[in-house]
Simulated assay, not measured.
Amino acid sequence: MGDNSSKMAAPVILNATAKHSATVIFLHGLGDTGHGWASAMGNLSMPHIKVICPTAPVMPVTLNAGFKMPSWFDLTSLEVDAPEDAPGIKAARDKIHELIDAEVRSGIPANRIVLGGFSQGGGLALYSAFTHKESLAGVVALSCWLPLRSEFPQAALGNTATPILQCHGDCDPVVPFKFGQLTSSLIKKFAGNLEFKTYKGMMHSSCDEEMANVKDFVRQRIPSL
């Protein structure tokens, strides 16, 4: 395996088409790549926004019988009390913080960066935001849960006042809707600026209405300067 096991492939980057003044970083779900969400994120972008869709490293995933696939961290099962891959979650979080820090170094302040993700990527977005000291512009959490939830609220170092848009389909067979509801009520105890949106009949996917809501959120949080 060597070093390659933890290296990420190059992210998909959609550069701003006007003066770059804000960035969206969006994290895909298990088994997907940055390409899976790039066009959807590009559609809701604006000329001043750069979109970064990183691809998770390929690793064996316990949940899927040890098959190797892009995954931000190992998943043992999707039960409420499943053991979690704490070292993997924290290593993935460090990679996301590096992406944020690189944007900040390039001149985009943290409060002009929206971090988002779907499913496992949405969970990582939430975890990365709450363990990041600098305030982001907003967080988009789609069809997901908060990893290592027992660490909170103590682990929340920042972004407890940052606007969060959490979305979930009420027919999700993979990450049950109830997980979304439990996550929302847990987060609201220490980060109250959260809006939870439900999509009737939506499974573990997205829909036009949800994408329109995400677009509105992004445009509100990082408008053109």
Rank of each mutant, 00 (worst) to 15 (best):
V114I: 14
V80E: 14
F217S: 01
F177A: 11
Q220D: 13
V104I: 15
G2T: 12
A18T: 09
A40G: 14
V104P: 04
L63V: 02
G36W: 08
K90H: 11
V104A: 13
G180R: 00
A137Y: 05
N64Y: 06
N159K: 08
E79Y: 02
R219P: 02
L44G: 12
A156N: 11
I187L: 07
V51P: 13
F118P: 12
F177Q: 10
M202Q: 09
P223L: 03
F196R: 06
G42I: 10
V218A: 08
M8L: 13
A141V: 00
K50Y: 00
K90Y: 02
E210Q: 13
H28Y: 00
A10F: 11
F73C: 06
A137Q: 08
C171G: 13
P223V: 04
N43Q: 14
H28K: 02
L30N: 05
S119H: 02
P163D: 08
L146R: 02
G122R: 02
A102T: 14
G121T: 06
S205K: 12
K189Q: 14
D216Y: 13
A191S: 14
G169S: 10
Q181K: 15
L30H: 01
F130G: 07
L78A: 06
M41L: 14
M46D: 14
A38E: 07
F67V: 12
L225S: 15
H168V: 01
G42Q: 13
P87S: 05
F67R: 12
E210N: 10
V139E: 04
I108G: 08
V12Q: 13
S185M: 15
H132P: 01
G201I: 08
R219T: 15
F67H: 12
Q181A: 15
I89C: 09
V12H: 04
I222S: 09
D101Q: 14
L148H: 02
A9L: 10
I187H: 01
S128H: 07
K200Q: 15
V24G: 12
W72H: 03
P60L: 06
K90F: 00
T76E: 14
I100A: 09
A102L: 14
E103K: 05
A129F: 05
F73I: 05
N213Y: 05
D172R: 07
A91I: 03
P163R: 09
L148P: 03
T183E: 05
L124W: 03
P87R: 01
V175Y: 12
N15A: 15
F130N: 01
A22T: 11
L14A: 00
K7C: 06
M59L: 12
E209Y: 09
V140K: 05
S135W: 15
T17S: 15
H48L: 00
C207P: 06
V104L: 01
W145A: 13
L148Y: 06
T76V: 08
A92G: 04
M203Y: 10
S119Q: 03
D101S: 10
A125G: 08
N15F: 08
L75S: 01
L124N: 09
S128P: 03
A92R: 02
P70T: 09
P173S: 11
A161T: 13
K200S: 11
T162I: 11
G42C: 04
T76L: 11
K188P: 03
H35G: 02
H168Y: 04
I89L: 07
G36N: 00
D208C: 00
F190G: 00
I25K: 04
V174E: 07
P163M: 06
P176K: 13
A22D: 14
H48T: 09
T198K: 10
E210Y: 03
D74P: 09
L157D: 11
